[in-house]
Design a protein around this nucleic acid. Structure first.
Lengths: 224, 224
DNA sequence: CGAGAGCTTGAGTTATGTCAATTCGTGTGG
DNA sequence: CCACACGAATTGACATAACTCAAGCTCTCG
């Protein structure tokens, strides 16, 4: 069975294990290319194996809203399990590789492995929860809190993958971070500088080192 | 079979039909009471039959973020299909009535009715899409656009339920609208006044009449 | 080495928030 | 039934966080 090669390079998320047997093919996506596009009907999920991918809404009028940054082990395409069309577009932020999990395969297998359904539901439920967390950030946090929350989230997910939780490279530009957090790239840049000045982090371009985890957490949780 | 009495009063959403046979009990929730609370483990979904319900995140530090307003026919609790805990709290905004759909019932039935799984997935996928739409609003719209989008959304959903799309009562306070849209209640109030002054709507307390649907749509779609 | 994209920083503007006073509406108890 | 009281909404004056525009800097890659 070739499935296991498709597990994420880092520590495989528990939820992904059962999807292993479903994998039929792998796809490489080059930096800048899209995995799927807004409007496509595509009855499959994608398990990100390597690289990083962003998903974004593309509204009429050209405005774009990034709805998620995905790391190895994450599942992409949960918003497209509707007859009709994908509501978002998935773009590779660096050369990436995903495993394809077809929906009809899931249906087939889950006939014999009923807990697979639960896994899928859990994944979707988690995705809803993730969106709600971002809503919380955009709806009720100030810019500095948003960025702090963003950094902490990234740190946590990377450490779950076996990477350092304090030292990492951000794959996304200031503009992408700003778009995701509902800020301008200038504001994001200024905040990075300020955090560095205050000794919370060290930052050089896309390389970050977190120096004061406690302070960052306080920033997010405390005020009001 | 008592299920059918649990369909929403208005035009039943197509997605709900299949859930009909799953309904075992109905629950009344009085205004201000909660259907479930953050942290509870509750393996069920709720189909709102009558009334209106809001869901909100309650963060440590007392900050609250409303994540959704639900109308008859909507499904509530999609974010709680995880072992562990509900991430949100659901509160009735007026005396309401929901139908309970237990998860293990779904599993049982879907053994014989495989398309039921698809319905569930569609519902969850739709919920993700809904969240993303709000993200778009909070992340890249100005206050007036957010409120316009909010009104249009409400109008549309109410008309789908058989009510007037131009004349309706908002069940939520200015403060709740503001919280949901990432604005203060004062800003919301001022916007209502301004929309009225400009002839887009007529508004008195929670009663709204939409006068210029075209202008509202332009407001949302056009600028930038 | 040069060009372009990405990032930083400054100065000035503006949308939205904050604080506060007033009105409106609704429900309650005398 | 009236009057009072309380929560909700409106409106104004002012403060400020974040945006816009603009210039200059720094990587990267061809």
């Amino acid at each position: 069975m070739m499935g296991h090669v498709c597990l994420p390079v880092g520590m495989p998320a528990q939820e992904v294990e059962q999807l292993d047997m479903l994998v039929k093919e792998r796809i490489r996506v080059e930096k800048g290319d899209s995995l799927y596009r807004h409007g496509e009907k595509l009855n499959a999920l994608f398990a990100l194996r390597l690289g990083s991918i962003k998903t974004q809404l593309e509204e009429q009028g050209g405005q774009v809203q990034i709805t998620g940054f995905f790391l190895p082990g994450d599942i992409i395409g949960l918003d497209g399990m509707i007859e009709g069309a994908h509501s978002s577009t998935a773009v590779a932020m660096e050369d990436s590789e995903v495993c394809v999990v077809r929906l009809d395969e899931i249906d087939e297998i889950s006939r014999y492995v009923p807990t697979l359904q639960h896994q899928i539901r859990r994944l979707m439920s988690k995705e809803i929860g993730r969106s709600h967390q971002v809503l919380l950030a955009l709806g009720s946090m100030r810019s500095e809190q948003r960025l702090a929350a963003f950094l902490l989230n990234l740190s946590q997910r990377l450490s779950a993958l076996g990477y350092s939780s304090t030292d990492f490279i951000m794959r996304m530009s200031r503009e992408e971070i700003g778009n995701y957090l509902g800020l301008t790239l200038e504001t994001v840049s200024r905040l990075f500088s300020r955090f560095a000045r205050e000794g919370l982090i060290r930052v050089s371009q896309r390389e970050v080192r977190i120096l004061d985890l406690v302070a960052l957490n306080e920033l997010v949780g405390k005020p009001c």
